[in-house]
């Protein structure tokens, strides 16, 4: 009964509590706590080496946390492997290109689809007729994403032969094929053509309007200002401030640490 009193959208979707990640004595992430509010885009900014990517990896499970807890959708996922988090719709992208080079662009998208009957040994052995319908549906879905991002003409090219910006797009589309509920983006715009940057920006706004929650690392502060509802600032493994971009600009130590110089 009490749950009807608090608006469900205010309850954080992900709560990271006192996360530490050490690399042999190097405290890359040093006690970060952070809430991700559903339906919003949260920005994560900070100087190089602040520990942003490491923190994102810990959230996605591609790196285990040294200590701390992560609760996602009310479930403690701290010890859950990355692939299970992805199946629970907590999906990350990587800062460095991470395409499947010897798969075509279209295949890079298709492979991420979580609901293909042919994506198990049993389904595969049953033969094409068993899974072709799923495959057709997913090809359609993947092609509409490719069209949206202006990459239709490239669908049959190997992903490894694409430019840096195109690889970035492939990775975002691949993540979207999973229908994420929380998307972790690590510098999604770096190396992308300005026209496409705008396209990504609109697309992310559309996705937010449809209820997708996003946590993104981004260096380009204008982009952060335009896209993000709240911003968290990290430096040297710690959170040094959070709030809207406007309020952050008023805080002297944050400006000193990062926003200028």
């Amino acid at each position: 009964m009490s749950s009807t009193l608090t608006a469900p959208t205010d309850k954080p979707m992900l709560v990271a509590n006192d996360i530490h990640r050490h690399f042999e004595g190097m405290h890359a992430v040093d006690g970060v706590s952070l809430d991700v509010i559903p339906g919003k885009i949260t920005g994560l900014i900070g100087p190089n080496g602040a520990g942003k990517s490491t923190f994102m990896a810990v959230l996605a499970g591609t790196l285990p946390a040294t200590s701390g807890t992560i609760v996602f959708d009310g479930e403690d996922i701290t010890r859950m492997p990355a692939y299970m988090r992805a199946r629970r719709r907590l999906v990350r992208t990587f800062q460095l290109p991470s395409e499947f080079a010897q798969l075509t662009v279209l295949e890079n998208l298709l492979v991420a689809a979580p609901t293909n009957r042919g994506d198990s040994l049993f389904g595969a052995l049953m033969g094409k007729r068993y899974w072709i319908e799923d495959e057709r549906r997913l090809v359609g879905e993947a092609r509409s994403l490719l069209k949206r991002f202006g990459m239709s003409a490239k669908e049959s090219d190997y992903a490894g032969s694409m430019s840096g910006g195109q690889k970035r797009l492939i990775e975002i589309m691949r993540a979207l094929m999973l229908h994420p509920s929380l998307l972790l983006l690590d510098e999604p715009m770096s190396g992308v053509h300005p026209k496409i940057v705008e396209e990504i920006q609109y697309y992310l706004q559309d996705l937010r309007a449809e209820g997708l929650t996003i946590l993104m690392v981004e260096h380009e502060l204008h982009m952060v200002e335009r896209l993000c509802d709240t911003v968290v600032v990290m430096a040297q493994g710690k959170v040094i401030g959070s709030g809207t971009m406007t309020s952050l600009r008023r805080q002297r130590e944050i400006v000193d640490a990062y926003l200028v110089g």
Partner: peptide
Amino acid sequence: VVNRVVNSPYGRSLRAMRERELAAAAIGKN
């Protein structure tokens, strides 16, 4: 058997894992 495996969506997951294991895990492959 091998043709069905290789030419299926499952085979695609295998090839993706061969290419980049960490990224495959990040899209839900075990």
